[in-house]
Amino acid sequence: MEIPYTVTARPDTGLWNAKIGIWLFLASEIMLFGGLFSAYVFLRIGADAANPWPHGLLNVPVGTFNTFVLISSSMTMVMAWASLKMRKFAQYRIYMGLTILCALAFLCVKAYEYNDKFHHYGVWLKNGEFITGHLEENTPESLTILPDIHHEGRHFWPETEHGAPREIKKADIRRWSNFTPKFSPFFAIYFTLTGLHGLHVFGGMVVNIYFWLPGSKLYRTNPEHLANRVEVSGLFWHFVDLVWIFLFPVLYLL
């Protein structure tokens, strides 16, 4: 038994099955990220005095670099598909390889960013003061923090200057945490959104690796079918890029 329209289009709809399938899936993905984005809006509008919405906590140059990486991967992805359509297999291999490389680079940069955040601390004192910086020492009675020095206005390059070490008594502390999801609503939504996005990058990368190596055998028997499959994974890949296009300004810049 054969399922019809897996490679060729059904005449009246003009579409093959997987094309419809992937677009439906992307529609649900729009609602998934839509749910998270609406949570972002909700949290941001509702930010109160105890948790004002922060600005400039993320590393803009690194984020910009990662945006470039993802945009490039989108370009190489579409070129990989076009190469298959033009039946240039060697070229397909190169472009697909580049796409995978970009995905890997993106994930590595993201891991670096996460790690950097985990090593940053914030302390709320009972007298209302709020200090951020690196943790020098943590004893049962006190914390020693290398406080960040903030300059007025917004900066492209992150500020890395530290003041003199400052010892804070635990008794004076209302709450302290490193920059993990529990730190604040901003970091909660930041890690959730980018984490979910990162999972998508990872998943897309795995599928692309499959089409790059073992899956590409199909080229010999049915190149059009392979092109269709790569188009499907490409659609997913571009969508992941598209989500990042919104994530980047929303989280890093605004």
Binding site: I22, V207, F236
Partner: peptide
């Protein structure tokens, strides 16, 4: 969740 929702694997050779 991931692209495995695409039918890419439906006709997986083996």
């Amino acid at each position: 969740m991931e692209i495995s929702a695409s039918p890419a694997h439906v006709h997986h050779g083996e």
